[in-house]
């Protein structure tokens, strides 16, 4: 059960999907960047969002009724 909760957590989504998505978007628009730089930047941004989502319960920081 813990393994499933981990798989469905925002942190795992940020690493598993948002990081490669952001990296591939960066590489598609900024072709001069190297792949490691693009993935490193994407990982930093994605993880930041993932941590916010994990601890605040919202990807956007704001929550309903606030």
């Amino acid at each position: 059960m813990k393994l499933i909760k981990l798989l469905l957590s925002p942190i795992v989504f940020s690493i598993g999907f948002l990081t490669p998505l952001l990296a591939q978007l960066i590489l598609a628009t900024r072709t001069e960047l190297s792949t490691p730089v693009a993935y490193g930047t994407a990982l930093t941004i994605s993880i930041a969002f993932g941590i916010i989502a994990q601890h605040r319960g919202s990807w956007l920081w704001v929550k309903d009724h606030e």
């Binding site: 798989l7 469905l8 795992v12 989504f13 598993g16 999907f17 990081t19 490669p20 998505l21 990296a23 591939q24 978007l25 598609a28």
Partner: peptide, 16 residues
């Protein structure tokens, strides 16, 4: 999520 993660890390994140 397994399908999305696999596609994304195989270079098809934008398509997914």
């Amino acid at each position: 999520l397994t399908i999305m993660f696999t596609l994304a890390w195989s270079g098809y994140a934008i398509e997914a």
